[in-house]
Design a binder for these strands. Structure first.
Length: 645
RNA sequence: GCCAUUGUAGCUCAGUUGGCCAGAGCGGCUGAUUUGUAAUCAGCGGGUCGGGGGUUCGAAUCCCUCCAAUGGCUCCA
């Protein structure tokens, strides 16, 4: 073994160190400040502790608290700190798993007491205490047998189960801080003293290994940051999210409601129905312009159809059934079978393809009671569905067209940060030949490349009948939502024996593309309520304008203003209570009405309105007709946040 | 479905260990006021305390059961 190792740093400079040098020592050699800010290292691309010793020539990167990977390490180390605190407070607790997740971490604990908000305070205090002790976090390695023995002795049954599933010859690592030791791959921070800004957020039940047949453990969620400001900003974001919760806003703005009489079945109120209809109108319009033909298929269809489509075998548990004239029927959970029947009703030539059938399809799915959640998860919803039947050669172009349409539609709502995932053939559960899958996957991939967009590949995550592209957007609070999906399907055309007459005069099987862009109207409306925080762009606002007479003397004029706007197609109401303007304005602001039109003596004599816009305040007096036209332009353009006047 | 928590007026919430006809604010209605850019004053209505059963002299409060909601788990648009 060489006495010296050559270390290549990220700037490509090469330095020599004595054999066995640690990552931390390398950091120190650059500067003391770097060591102080360093969290972990990367040796030849592999994450390691600062204490990791290097015995051969390597490239080394020092991770400071600024990198995303460092944050994950912090979260993971905080999970350990929490587990340590829990073990000190409740020695009988057994710890299961505690990983980092997006924006936080959790730890699953088996304990015969129930954690509540108070426990969180107690545990958090203990964690602070342990952090102040600045305990070194040391890595320790075991053979598999040693590890089994050790964790069996300290009674950590879940760890024993995890170890026993590892390979015989694998080296097993664990991390020790004070008296606490946890099985873990690492890496970790060098000391508990580095964990300063954290918060425990919630408790819940969680099955051991996510299997509902296993014991339910208690999970505690928390988050942590290197910087106090970042923690504060994150907690503020959570608070803001709570304020924007679509269930809360749905009540406050009188958009929709839910009732015990129909769990999971939304009731749309007049205000919410405006949102629904506006989106629907836009959707229809943009699809018409893109060559789609809109259809409507029945909600209840004979069970035999669902056997043929494969839904009965794969989806039965989520389907509602009914009996009509002693025959079995099912309420549709998807629209495809109905579309297939329409396709089969006509003989198509290759010249007729692609055939693009769109439906705002009302589907019902029986979801487990515990998963229902506002408009995000319901039992009845409207999919913005479409099925494209085309020749195999046209698939790629069709995908490109759909991708462009997706971007266009998301752009209208201000969703510009779009993340795309390509899911490929599942390992086990799939139908169709490898050749067909390869073709389908490359069609999707080529289309994505043609559009020049980045995407992430999820190997094995495709549907059993074909690969898919999923679209994820980020809302105004940077939260990610999955909306659209494009799925290539070779199985339905086969099961339903679809055909078209090709150029050669013989019959061929078309390819079916299943796609949804908004996903479901219900869910999408829930998302935009939170995205806009209830402050909708003018074209969507349930009430666009409200007329506020200064006193009852001007009620007649106010009514005529309202009538004029209504006739121009602007959704207008009036507040003719016997209140002061201040009170009326306050009420209109609370209702998030974008345009307030104040009328009194001056306005009446000039046939004008005094305009007050939300977020802008008093804009002064304007001619009624002129201003009305101005609003119409803003509505027509679907302007997101008024820039006017 | 599972674990935990919750359910009092249209909305937001008080109601201590079981004890006078169950309260407040906002909203609503009525009257006064006639108002110029985020709350005028006064009065009046409004509740099977989620449903059902039980314990008790007495239950919003304790017990059982069902329903629904919330945070998660599993699942998913």
């Amino acid at each position: 073994m060489a006495k010296e190792v050559k270390i290549t740093l990220p700037d490509n400079s090469v330095k020599s160190f004595k054999n066995g040098v640690s990552v931390g020592e390398i950091a120190l050699s650059i500067s003391e400040g770097l060591l102080r800010n360093s969290v972990a290292g990367k040796v030849d691309g592999v994450l390691v502790d600062l204490s990791f010793q290097i015995n051969e020539d390597s490239s080394v990167e020092i991770l400071t608290s600024r990198s995303e990977e460092s944050h994950e390490i912090l979260l993971h180390s905080t999970a350990h700190l929490m587990a340590q605190a829990i073990k000190e407070l409740y020695p009988n607790a057994k710890i299961a798993i505690g990983p980092s997740i997006d924006n936080g971490f959790y730890y699953d604990i088996d304990i015969d007491k129930t954690f509540n908000d108070e426990s969180l305070v107690v545990i958090e205090a203990k964690m602070k205490e342990l952090s102040k002790l600045k305990l070194p976090i040391d890595r320790q390695e075991f053979s598999r047998d040693e590890a089994l023995e050790y964790f069996k002795n300290i009674g950590e049954d879940y760890k024993v189960e995890l170890i026993s599933e590892l390979d015989e010859d694998e080296t097993i690592s664990a991390y020790r801080q004070g008296d606490f030791i946890d099985l873990c791959k690492g890496p970790h921070l060098p000391s508990t003293g580095k964990i300063k800004f954290f918060k425990l957020l919630s408790t819940s039940g969680a099955y051991w290994r996510g299997d509902e047949n296993n014991k339910m453990l208690q999970r505690i969620y928390g988050t942590a940051f290197f910087d106090k400001k970042d923690l504060k900003a994150y907690l503020q974001m959570l608070e803001e999210a709570m304020k924007r919760d679509h269930r809360k806003l749905g009540k406050e703005l009188d958009l929709f409601s839910f009732h015990q009489e129909g769990p999971g079945f939304p009731f749309w109120h007049p205000n919410g129905m405006v949102l629904y209809n506006q989106i629907q109108e836009y959707w229809s319009d943009v699809h018409r312009k893109n060559g789609y033909k809109e259809i409507k298929t029945p909600i209840i269809l004979n069970e035999a159809l669902w056997h043929r489509s494969g839904h009965w075998d794969n989806y039965k548990d989520n389907m509602y059934t009914t009996t009509i004239d002693e025959h079995q029927y099912s309420v549709k959970p998807m629209n495809c079978p109905g579309h297939l029947l329409i396709y089969k009703n006509t003989m198509y030539s290759y010249r007729d393809l692609p055939l693009k059938l769109a439906e705002m399809g009302l589907v019902h799915r029986h979801e487990k009671s515990g998963v229902l959640s506002g408009l995000f998860r319901v039992r009845q919803f409207t999919q913005d569905d479409a099925h494209i039947f085309c020749t195999p050669e046209k698939v790629e172009q069709q995908i490109v067209d759909i991708i462009n349409l997706v971007f266009e539609i998301y752009g209208v709502f201000g969703f510009e940060d779009i993340h795309i995932e390509l899911s490929t053939k599942p390992e086990k559960k799939f139908i169709g030949s490898q050749e067909i899958w390869d073709k389908a996957e490359s069609a999707l991939e080529e289309a994505l490349k043609k559009c020049d967009i980045d995407f992430q590949v999820n190997p094995g995550d495709g549907a059993f009948y074909g690969p898919k592209i999923d679209f994820h957007i980020k809302d105004s609070l940077k939260r990610s939502w999955q909306l659209g999906t494009i799925q290539l399907d070779f199985s339905m055309p086969e099961r339903f024996e679809l055909e078209y007459v090709g150029e050669d005069g013989s019959k061929h099987q078309p390819v079916m593309i299943h796609r949804a862009i908004l996903g479901s109207f219900e869910r999408f409306i829930g998302i935009i309520i939170e995205h806009f925080g209830g402050d909708f762009p003018l074209w969507l606002a349930p009430i666009q304008a409200i007329v506020l007479p200064i006193s009852e003397k001007y009620t007649d004029y106010a009514e005529s203003v309202k009538l004029k706007l209504l006739q121009n197609g602007i959704r207008t109401t009036i507040d003719n209570r016997s209140e002061k303007v201040g009170a009326k304005i306050r009420q209109a602001e609370l209702n998030k009405i974008p345009v307030m039109l104040i009328v009194g003596e001056k306005e009446e004599s000039d046939n004008a309105v005094s305009v007050r816009r939300r977020f802008k305040g008093d804009l002064g007096s304007m001619d009624l007709e002129t201003y009305s036209q101005k609003l119409l332009i803003e509505i027509e353009n679907k302007t997101r946040r008024s820039s006017d006047s």
